[in-house]
Structures are given as structure tokens and as C-alpha cells.
Amino acid sequence: MSIEIKAVKRDVKGTGASRRLRRAGSVPGVVYGGEQGALSIELNHKELFMEFRHEAFHASILNLNVDGKVESVLLRDYQLHPVRNTIQHIDFQRVSATEKIHVKVPFHFINEEVAPGVKTGGGNISHIQTEADVSCLAKDLPEFVEVDLATLEAGHSIHLSEIKLPKGVEFVQLAHGDDAAVVSIAKPRGGSDEAAAETPAA
């Protein structure tokens, strides 16, 4: 999925200028990184928000078109209005084709409804992590990582080391020796075995 964002160079800076931009329906922003210096930009809020609301916008290489010149970038930061939920400011980072990047990628949990721990064990699923930091080249960046619960039993968890990643992609936590749990199924409370144990013998 290729996402292109259009922007224009922003010459006027400062709080007052940014406020005027927002009133006019634009979003102030900046793109930085690589061999070039930071560049102040402005984007159409309506067009930007149409892409911003999609999950892929937050974990994909984006094509940023600034006055006709296209660069590969990542979304790095943004500020939302606390009441209106409009984008107040946005930051992009240029990416290199030859240098690894660190990006938070969402998990997509599949086969939850057929997991033995739920279907026959009556357990409850707990999403311990909903995203994870991965390291890879820009060309290898996945939009999401699937976590398959098809064989997960009650009382068990799936850890980072058990999740299959695309070639060239690795979990940053795992590379640092932290094999954290991602999802688990808790055993149901007050099952038949517990009830039998609590019932006094006749």
C-alpha cells in the first residue's frame, strides 16, 4: 500500500503563523533527517486527516510530496487538539534505503474465536501488547504483524520469539534479550475442578 502526502514549503514560522495556518485549514509540520536540514512544511488538514485515520499511515513508509519533490518518510510525531481532535502539528523523518529503521508496528490477532483456550477452555484473552518496535530496512517494513492464536490453550501465552516475522525484520525487545509475552488466555475463575475441591466430602 503506497500512501502519498502532499505538502508545500512553509516560509513563515512562529506560534502566530501556525495559528493562522490552522484557521485556514492547514497543518504546520516539519520533515527532518538524512543529509538535508529540517524543512518546515504545511499540509491540507482535510487531505492529511483522510490518511491519518488509517492504521497503515502510522506504520508505513510514506511518500511525502513537497512542491513536486517526493521523499520517503516515516511519521514520527504529531499533536492533536484535546477537544476537536484535529491535527495541530506533524513531524516526518526522512528514511534511507540502506539504513535500518526502528518503527512501532501494530499486532493483528487472528483465530481468537477458535483458540482452544477460549472455545473449549472458557478462558479470556488478554492483549498484553498491541504493538512492538521492529528493526529493518525501509523496504522490509511490514504494515502489521500477525499473531495466530489457533493453538493457544488457557493458562498459556504467546511470546515475541514465537511470532513469525517477515525476512529482514526483527523485534527490538527480543534483540535485547527481552522475550516479552504478547497475548495470553487466562483460565476461567471458579471452574468445576475448583468447585469440587471446595465442596466438603459427605
Rank of each mutant, 00 (worst) to 15 (best):
T98W: 09
V114Y: 09
V66L: 12
H159V: 03
L64I: 04
S26Y: 15
P116V: 05
A175V: 04
R189C: 03
A132Y: 00
L75G: 13
I90Q: 01
E162Y: 03
I163L: 05
A195P: 02
T130P: 12
I87P: 07
V70R: 15
G123I: 03
F144P: 07
H58M: 15
L80C: 06
K167H: 02
G122M: 06
A150W: 09
G34P: 08
Y78P: 04
Y78W: 00
I90S: 11
A195W: 06
L174P: 01
L48C: 05
P188D: 01
K6G: 14
E146T: 12
I41Q: 11
E71C: 00
G68H: 11
E194D: 05
K139H: 06
P116F: 04
R53Q: 13
C136P: 02
H176Q: 12
T151W: 03
R94V: 03
V8T: 15
H156D: 00
K104N: 11
V70S: 04
A181L: 07
L149H: 00
V66T: 13
H102N: 06
T199P: 02
D67S: 09
S26G: 15
H54N: 13
I90F: 05
R76Q: 15
I5K: 00
D67H: 10
D179R: 01
T120I: 10
I87H: 06
A195H: 02
A97M: 14
L48M: 12
E112P: 01
G25R: 10
S157D: 02
T86Q: 04
K164C: 12
L160I: 03
C136Y: 06
L75C: 01
N111S: 06
V183R: 13
R189A: 11
A201P: 02
L43K: 11
S2M: 12
H156Q: 11
S96Y: 07
V73P: 04
V8E: 04
E170N: 10
G117E: 07
H127A: 04
V172D: 05
A180Q: 08
R22Q: 12
L165V: 02
I61P: 13
E146H: 07
I87M: 14
P82E: 05
T98N: 08
A38E: 03
S184M: 05
D133H: 01
G37I: 14
K13G: 09
A196R: 14
H54Q: 10
S184G: 14
D11Y: 09
L21D: 13
G33A: 03
S184C: 15
G190N: 08
E35A: 13
